[in-house]
């Protein structure tokens, strides 16, 4: 297989396992490229990409921009932390204005679930979802699973625990879809109020006990507490959360085996993960960041290829 089955990357849910493997294989190649002295290839030199971020982002935006520049694409950036609607312009108007400047691909982050799907129905460009509300963050899940694959080769039958605020996490949902497609077993863990009531219907196990989750898994993906996305009160205090759901060295040592620790960032040190875990040799947090560029290069390259076909 040399082509993706999709025209846009809206979510992992739409991808096949073959699509994911193709992205991984392409990323392997680009990872080698970005470690060369000359880190750039001319693959997308006739492509213009707009990075449209309606929500704050540091690493995802930087990672996409680097990926685009390494592929020699022309890049324009638009950021607005305020909702465009509040300014009186609709999302569609904003994007159409940008597209009328002849843009081929749009990388968009938005606070509304489904925003990328909505755009894909109404505009011509290829869309890459860089996070839509509490729905999906497909490139994050791809780089997460790619990073696990680097450590343990085949994910089939491996056990991955996703720990933290599952309810507000697009990373969790995309990871669940990706891990299941790759044959891994998934468990989600957090306070019951931060776990969607029907999450087990997606084929994942559920635990309210961090130690139990850590003892069960081969890999623990620890998520950030999304205080900015919580419209209501879900737990009493950060202090209590870190005491009962935070992962620290003492807890990790107590489970009697060495597991891989991941975090999509940015880290709330001392809340969901302690510094001595984040900075330990078990942690692959910085590998995730490095792999992010290769994965995004692969996604953009494959979508551009699909476009040309």
């Amino acid at each position: 297989m040399t082509n993706l089955s999709v025209k846009h990357l809206l979510g992992i849910k739409d991808l096949t396992a073959d699509d994911i493997q193709l992205i991984f294989q392409t990323a392997d190649h680009f990872k080698e490229v970005i470690n060369r002295p000359i880190k750039k290839v001319p693959s997308l030199r006739d492509i213009t990409i707009a990075n449209i971020f309606f929500e704050n982002s540091t690493r995802t935006k930087l990672s996409f921009e680097l990926a685009e520049k390494r592929l020699s694409a022309d890049v324009v950036n638009f950021s607005s932390s305020n909702s465009s609607v509040k300014k009186g312009e609709t999302l569609l108007d904003t994007v159409n204005n940008i597209l009328s400047m002849k843009v081929d691909m749009v990388v968009m982050r938005h606070s509304s679930a489904g925003a990328a799907h909505f755009l894909s129905r109404h505009i011509e460009a290829n869309i890459v979802n860089a996070g839509d509300g509490t729905h999906e963050h497909p490139t994050q899940a791809l780089l997460d699973t790619y990073s696990i694959r680097e450590q343990i080769q085949d994910l089939k039958g491996k056990k991955v625990a996703i720990i933290g605020d599952i309810l507000h996490s697009r990373v969790a949902l995309s990871n669940i879809y990706a891990l299941k497609k790759l044959g891994a077993e998934v468990l989600v863990c957090g306070p019951a109020t931060l776990l969607p009531k029907y999450i087990s219907e997606l084929g994942v196990a559920v635990s309210w006990d961090v130690k139990e989750a850590l003892e069960w898994c081969d890999v623990a993906n620890i998520l950030r507490i999304q205080l900015e996305r919580q419209q209501l009160k879900y737990f009493p205090s950060l202090r209590e959360y870190s005491l009962y759901y935070g992962v620290n060295k003492k807890l990790l040592d107590s489970i009697g085996k060495e597991i891989i620790v991941m975090h999509p960032g940015p880290i709330n040190r001392g809340v969901e993960i302690s510094s001595d875990v984040a900075d330990s040799k078990q942690s692959i947090i910085l590998n995730q960041v490095e792999n992010g560029v290769a994965i995004r290069m692969a996604v953009l390259y494959l979508l551009a290829q699909k476009r040309q076909n």
């Binding site: 679930a113 489904g114 839509d132 509490t134 729905h135 009531k197 029907y198 999450i199 997606l202 419209q231």
Partner: peptide, 21 residues
């Protein structure tokens, strides 16, 4: 029902949309 967008269930969970139980 506050902030809910659709029925709470498997579909809302898979879409990341807040459900109305």
């Amino acid at each position: 029902a506050l902030f809910g967008q659709m029925n709470e269930g498997k579909t809302s969970t898979g879409l990341g949309l807040k459900g109305i139980p």
